[in-house]
């Protein structure tokens, strides 16, 4: 009983943190969407991540960078293109094709050739996903002063994570009469303040999925959200697997130690 009170007290202290994730202004709270990767047993729906990659490349990448991800991440453990034929993701032929599909370009400004110019070459798996704009100023200039945020961590960088991203992408609607929108702004109740610079990026049939799935707005929104959830947390599956092993081990260890404790204290008045 005492132990329970101790644990409850501790958890109450930790529970404060739930309220510390501050309110997101006046925004609508997003609905809880069902995600395959949610919960202690959740794994990423690999096909959804693959489709989401396609959505990112064909729709989002024109404005949003993915600076922290390299092509090889797609082929690493837990990635959408993981393949047992290539345990080393840098040898993964499909990953290499994706890297090369961006054509010859400057991948690393610090790679200088003998003429003193940055080297222009085909991509390799080790290269990062290229950014659409060279720097923040050019990005803002091309987007009416607004900066399209980098998407590498977007699911972790927003309260309600994947639910928020999905709600945002599917939540565009006509502005209410009392909404003040500056030119170039759009109404989205899920965005703090309601006025977002991004035009609705998705619409039914916008692209053709490689696996033939029907590309409705909701489908693309869901797939790209799952892709971004993976991008924010590529080790999630390994983390949960290890978590179960650790908990099972500690549980057994706890039982053994408890029995040892009872044994030690068996004949002692306390």
């Amino acid at each position: 009983m005492k132990m329970f009170r101790i644990i409850a007290a501790g958890l109450a202290a930790l529970g404060l943190s739930a309220t510390a994730s501050a309110l997101e202004g006046d925004a609508h709270a997003p609905h809880a969407h069902h995600w395959h990767h949610a919960g202690p047993f959740g794994t990423f729906d690999r096909h959804a991540v693959q489709r989401g990659l396609q959505v990112y490349q064909e729709v989002c990448a024109s404005c949003h960078s993915l600076n922290l991800l390299s092509f090889r991440n797609l082929g690493e453990r837990g990635g959408p293109l993981e393949d047992e034929r290539w345990p080393n993701a840098n040898d993964n032929l499909i990953v290499m094709q994706i890297a090369e599909s961006y054509g010859e370009r400057v991948w690393d400004r610090d790679e200088i050739n003998d003429d003193g110019d940055p080297v222009s070459r085909l991509g390799i798996p080790a290269d990062r996903f290229p950014a659409p704009f060279e720097n923040e100023q050019i990005a803002r200039g091309s987007n009416g002063g607004a900066l399209p945020p980098d998407l590498s961590l977007i699911v972790k960088a927003r309260s309600h994570g994947a639910d928020y991203i999905y709600a945002l992408l599917t939540g565009y609607e006509d502005a209410p009469h009392d909404a003040h929108l500056a030119p170039g702004q759009h109404y989205n109740a899920y965005f703090p303040g309601g006025a977002i610079a991004m035009a609705p990026p998705l619409s039914d049939g916008l692209l053709e999925y490689a696996d033939g799935t029907e590309a409705t707005l909701e489908q693309m929104a869901e797939d790209v959200t799952v892709f971004l959830a993976w991008a924010s947390d590529p080790h999630m599956e390994a983390r949960k697997q290890m978590g179960w092993m650790v908990l099972i081990y500690l549980f057994i260890f706890a039982i053994l130690t408890y029995l040892a404790y009872r044994q030690v204290w068996a004949n002692v008045k306390h």
């Binding site: 501790g10 983390r239 949960k240 978590g243 908990l247 500690l250 706890a254």
Partner: peptide
């Protein structure tokens, strides 16, 4: 540590 592990891993 078990409670800690729940937070670290899940």
């Amino acid at each position: 540590l078990m409670i800690f592990a729940i937070f670290v891993f899940f």
